[in-house]
Simulated scan of single mutants.
Amino acid sequence: MTQHLRVGVVGAGRVGAVLAARLRSAGHEIVAAAGESDASTQRIAALLPGVPTEKPSVVARACDVLLLTVPDDMLANVVHVLSASGALRAGQYVVHTSGRHGLDVLAPAAELGARVVAMHPAMTFTGTEIDLDRLTGCYFGLTAGPAEREFAAGLVADLGGRPLWVPEESRTLYHAALAHGANHLVTLVTEAMEMLTAAGADDPAGTLRPLLGAALDNALAQGDAALTGPIVRGDVNTVAAHLEEIAANAPHTMPSYVALGRATLSRAVTDGRLVPIRALRINQLLEEALAESAVRPVYLRDVRDARDGR
């Protein structure tokens, strides 16, 4: 994109501050940013030195391109308030970074004549300068009208990314895929490290790193063909031993182990690598282990206690 943009950011969280910093490095002007928390203020100071911190309505009025990088559940209200307050105007670009939402959530802005775009980076963010290089080659889930497609693609190019055009009706499924793959991966890896620690590993992260790196590369390249392990091999006794040890030493991981075990079992049967009779026996073991485990009510109680500050 060759034109000089005057960009404002509402929601200087991990995503907003980083995107703004990358656009700044591409030659665009960041006129103002809005962020109420101490963490947001620190990010603005670190990644956007010299950029004033203002109220959202002030930011919106000052820019030609407004980045709305607020949490999904807040987005509709932010758009409504800014539209109702007169902070948005015809011809202004209003771009949100929500994965779940498309253009519908920006309808109040569009009714004012604003040009609306949904632009979600398929990336996890730390909110630090580390993220700036990670944006290179990153896909952005884009949804835009015909008149805004060229602008949206140019904005992604300036961020160092690549466009992935997502239909309005597919935004939630697109986002669910990313959350399932990335967010649940963090949970899975963390539980695996906890189990290794219980088994006496001094460096659980170092133990898992080469294995997980190879597994991820293989899965991305080969899909189901990359599946290995006792379930795919039909090693009933090994699965039974796993379940016994998990129940005794890491019971909080039982629900996820069983859920992922069932999913793996189904895929192994579908592609013909596991005979049904062994699959039935393994599934029975998984069901029995989950039924016998007392972890679910304990886990939910712990969640309630954490919520209530106990």
Rank of each mutant, 00 (worst) to 15 (best):
T126D: 10
P52W: 08
P121Y: 05
A84H: 07
T97R: 02
T53E: 00
H242F: 08
P297M: 08
D104W: 03
P49F: 07
V59H: 04
A26V: 05
D308E: 15
V65M: 05
P276T: 12
G309R: 01
V65E: 03
D308Y: 04
V94A: 10
R61A: 15
L220H: 13
L185D: 00
L103P: 06
R22M: 02
P163Q: 01
R24W: 01
Y257E: 07
E168S: 08
L280T: 12
A214K: 14
A46E: 14
V186I: 12
E194V: 04
R61T: 13
A268M: 04
T41S: 12
V7C: 11
P210H: 09
L290H: 11
L19V: 08
G161A: 11
R281W: 11
P255N: 02
A179P: 04
D38W: 07
L103V: 07
T207A: 15
V166G: 03
A268G: 08
V116A: 12
V303T: 05
I231W: 14
G50P: 01
T253M: 09
R281H: 12
C138F: 00
P146G: 12
A60W: 10
R307L: 14
V79M: 06
A32P: 02
L142M: 08
G161H: 04
I231L: 09
P49M: 05
E244F: 00
L19I: 09
D203K: 13
S256M: 15
T143Q: 01
H242P: 05
G8Y: 02
A192F: 03
T126H: 11
R304W: 00
L66F: 14
H175E: 09
G127L: 06
A17Y: 10
E129L: 00
L135S: 10
V78T: 14
L280E: 13
Q42A: 15
T238Y: 03
V51T: 13
A76F: 05
A176S: 03
T207V: 15
Y174T: 05
A147N: 10
V59S: 04
A247K: 11
S170C: 13
D131W: 00
V269D: 01
G35T: 13
L82E: 05
G161C: 09
P108T: 12
H120N: 13
E169W: 05
L216E: 01
M119R: 08
R301F: 06
D271H: 00
T253G: 10
V94K: 09
